[in-house]
Design a protein around this nucleic acid. Structure first.
Lengths: 226, 226
DNA sequence: CCTCCCTCTCTTGTATACCGAAATATCACC
DNA sequence: GGTGATATTTCGGTATACAAGAGAGGGAGG
């Protein structure tokens, strides 16, 4: 677990709840009772409320005045719209990254990709997933634009609870790897227009994969959440 | 003023503070004392704290540990980065708007632009500024993508306290009007690539104008805020 | 038997009080 | 006179107590 020392209770609670939401322990739609949470974390309602406020603004939780809070539920059209924006944003990120990444960052990106290839070859799914996520993050940070990084990550957060459904989609990893390879090369070569285009399309496809899951119905989700 | 009934005190305080920041009554860098605000609004510290938390997350306020909260101050490089993202985002908005706006929305956009022309011709600066802002908003909303709208507006908020400085820049309105005309035509014609490109460049220029002000030093700002 | 209204309860929103940490100022000692 | 330690003060974070609104359930009237 994360370090809890040196943190405020509000932060601790927020992180714990985020974790619960990301991992699926708190499914979208689940209601959040302040008092129950306060008991669970052995704190008063005050820091719980603070944590909730932060989660609300990050978009993970929704609250209706005097009516309680629930974990944000995303339907198919929401998801499509989310990825619509996300793919454009990551395309922009790739563009700026291709222009601005330092030689060290480019090297690191290449190294990261090579590690991904290895994880793929050895069939280590979990590791591959992690490295794949990190690839995205590295490109995003490569923009050297704090606002852009924040904006992109803010959207990304909303997708986390759903991402694990795209894990073992047949043949997905292979395509994913090929995409990353091409993107990495474009960025390292400084071909920003190509990088932008490739990354935009890449994320778009990811969205389609995820949307398909949702379109198939919520049965898989229910099973996974149970 | 806004309706205060049916709102929580926290919301009321947040809106009031936002207003103060947007209008310049609370200048960037101004310090915000929780207790003083509580007295001013005749509420306790609790809702004030909640309001502040929200303002912090929206980026309008910054809090330094043990030093109190201040209205976020943006320096030149921040501003440049903000507009870098904003121009890309608005470009994307124009793209989607050109594709998705309903015929009614396109007509409304044209009407709005015509009203702008009239305000420009009659020399009504304030009205022109308002309509110009509305033009942007209408394009943003024309995307019919809630996530994109929110993301764009979230960034836009940070710029509001500074926007009024671009008001009476010599020759600015004229160029602005020409830009809008071209963008409007591109959107109405459904030429999304052109619309995206035009809007991106348009917002970029706006950023340059604003950045120039900041680069000139804060004397003008101090004068305007006084 | 159904429906509508009232009340009751449950949860959220707000007030107030307290605690602990960090900054500053003052005093003592070097 | 300078430096360091300690006390004071202030502010942020937390707890608890209180008020108010929304929904549910029950009772009364149709």
């Amino acid at each position: 677990m994360a370090k809890t020392s040196g943190m405020t209770h509000a932060q601790t609670v927020r992180l714990a709840l985020e974790n619960d939401i990301f991992s699926g322990r708190l499914a979208p739609g689940a209601s959040l009772d302040e008092e129950a949470l306060a008991r669970r974390f052995s704190v008063s309602r005050t820091p719980v409320r603070e944590a909730m406020l932060q989660l609300i603004q990050s978009g993970l939780v929704e609250k209706k005045p005097r009516q309680g809070a629930i974990v944000t539920q995303i339907d198919l059209s929401d998801m499509i719209r989310l990825f619509e924006v996300m793919s454009e944003l990551e395309g922009i990120c790739a563009k700026f990254a291709a222009r601005r990444m330092t030689p060290q960052e480019r090297t690191a990106l290449r190294k990261l990709h090579e590690a991904s290839v290895e994880a793929f070859d050895t069939g280590d799914q979990d590791k591959y997933y992690l490295l794949s996520r990190k690839f995205h993050l590295m490109v995003i940070e490569g923009t050297h634009n704090h606002e852009l990084i924040e904006t992109t990550n803010r959207l990304g957060i909303k997708l986390v609870p759903y991402r694990r459904f795209q894990l073992n989609y047949p043949g997905r990893s292979e395509n994913n790897l090929r995409d990353h390879e091409a993107i990495m090369e474009a960025i390292c070569a400084g071909d920003y227009d190509l990088a932008a285009d490739l990354f935009r399309k890449h994320t778009n496809v990811q969205g389609d994969v995820l949307a398909e899951y949702i379109a198939l119905g919520d049965r898989q989700m229910a099973a996974a959440n149970g």
